[in-house]
Amino acid sequence: MNDYPSSLPPPQQRGYSCKIRPNMIRTQMADGHVRQRLVNTGAPHELAVTFMFTQTQYQEFMAWYRNDISFGQDWFRMKLLNEYGGTESVCRIQNGELSASLNCVNGEGPLWSVQCRLDMEPGSGSGSGGGGDEVWIDPEGWDELYAFIYVPYADTEPSWPGVKLEKNSQGYYVLSMELFSGIPCESTVEFHNNHGKYTYSIYLFEANDWPGRIIRVREYESEVEYVT
Rank of each mutant, 00 (worst) to 15 (best):
R213F: 06
V189Y: 00
W210A: 00
S169F: 00
Y173F: 15
N193W: 08
S201C: 11
Y172L: 06
G212W: 12
F191P: 14
I183V: 15
Y203F: 10
I214P: 04
S187M: 13
R213A: 11
E206N: 12
S181V: 09
Q170V: 04
Y172E: 02
A207I: 05
G196D: 00
K197V: 03
L179C: 06
R213P: 05
L179M: 13
Y198E: 14
P211I: 01
Y172G: 04
W210E: 00
Q170T: 08
V174Y: 06
P184C: 00
H195Y: 12
Q170K: 09
Y173N: 13
G182Q: 05
P211G: 03
G182R: 09
G182F: 07
E178W: 07
Y203T: 06
V189K: 00
G182V: 06
K167T: 15
S181M: 07
T188A: 09
Y198W: 10
S201D: 12
L165R: 05
E206L: 12
F180C: 02
P211R: 02
D209L: 14
E166G: 06
I202M: 15
P184V: 01
L204S: 01
E166N: 10
K164M: 08
E206K: 11
S176W: 12
F205Y: 14
F191Q: 09
F205I: 05
E186A: 09
G171D: 09
H192T: 08
E186M: 10
E190A: 08
Y198F: 15
I202A: 06
M177T: 11
Y172V: 07
E186L: 07
A207L: 04
D209V: 04
F205N: 12
F191G: 13
L204E: 01
T199K: 04
